[in-house]
Design a protein around this nucleic acid. Structure first.
Length: 274
DNA sequence: CAACCGACCTGTTCGC
DNA sequence: TGCGAACAGGTCGGTT
């Protein structure tokens, strides 16, 4: 579910109220949610660690702890991080890991589908090192993007979903960026013109920035919420994702859906010619 | 290498 | 109403 904007939204909201607090206990309810999968060692290593910082790299939440360890959280399809003030958990049934804090609050990792992971490591680069550039960073320039593109082949959408090529894009925002850039998802990467490269670069940065400003995207199933419970308002701004059968906001043509691997892609057959 | 498929999991919606 | 199929924001490993 969560892509870069949703993870960024979560981090921005949680960070100020977590920094400086210590973890006093860790409860593991689903062993495979943690790495390494040893609840006693995991909890022991986290006890009394102070949260020094919290950030994001691609779709990973990065929690820097005192003592040299780092906690990496990937929400995958259905994971959520929620800060709770009491003993109660909003979603007890899907609670996988809970971190108790020194002030009585708790940070809960809730994940119905159990795909998400909480990784405790002293070497975060072993996990994060293979990620491609951060699309919103200043050093990610249009020149840089163009150079990366010319070296690659295959379908453009597949490439944008590859986290080692560029970090943070998922199924929603690749479709939105390709629509904004007027590029068909199945276009061969090496067939893109210089102009198309530039349009794609701008589209990626704009759609991600706007989505962050809107607090991410909450779809009809409501599975993503901001940590404070509010919905992500960028759902109202989606131009193609999930809109098969509805008119293109630009030209009125009916939006189509195709299969790429086992995933859906939404596009306008007129604005995004093959 | 690029493309595709099944796994990993549970929950919800769709179609008959 | 009931019930199986299809589908879901992600990623990995194995096969063609």
């Amino acid at each position: 579910m969560p892509e870069l904007p949703e993870v960024e939204t979560v981090v921005r909201l949680l960070r100020p109220s977590l920094i400086g607090h210590a973890i006093t206990g860790t409860e593991v309810y689903w062993v495979r949610s943690i790495v390494p999968p040893e609840p006693l060692l995991f909890a022991g290593r986290l006890r009394d660690r102070v949260i020094l910082d919290m950030g994001r790299r691609g779709k990973w939440v990065v929690v820097t702890l005192g003592g040299g360890d780092t906690l990496l959280v990937h929400l995958r399809m259905s994971g959520r991080l929620m800060l709770e003030s009491g003993v109660r958990t909003a979603d007890e049934r899907h609670l996988r890991v809970r971190f108790l804090l020194d002030d009585g609050r708790a940070l809960s990792f809730v994940d119905p589908r159990k795909f998400g992971r909480v990784v405790l490591t002293s070497r975060p680069d072993e996990v994060l090192g293979n990620l491609g550039p951060e699309p919103l960073e200043a050093d990610f320039t249009v020149t840089h993007f163009g150079k990366l593109l010319t070296r690659r082949r295959g379908r453009i959408k597949t490439l944008l979903l590859d986290q080692t090529f560029i970090a943070g894009l998922g199924n929603i925002y690749t479709d939105e960026a390709l629509w904004r850039a007027g590029i068909h998802p199945l276009r061969e990467t090496n067939s893109l013109s210089h102009t198309e490269n530039e349009r794609l670069y701008r589209a990626i940065r704009e759609v991600l920035s706007e989505a962050i400003a809107g607090g991410g995207t909450t779809l009809a199933d409501q599975s993503y919420r901001q940590p404070d419970g509010r919905r992500g308002e960028f759902a109202d701004a989606l131009a193609v994702y999930g809109r098969a059968g509805q008119p293109c906001l630009h030209c009125g043509t009916i939006i189509e859906r195709l299969r790429l691997g086992q995933r859906s892609s939404y596009y306008c057959p007129v604005c995004q010619k093959f």
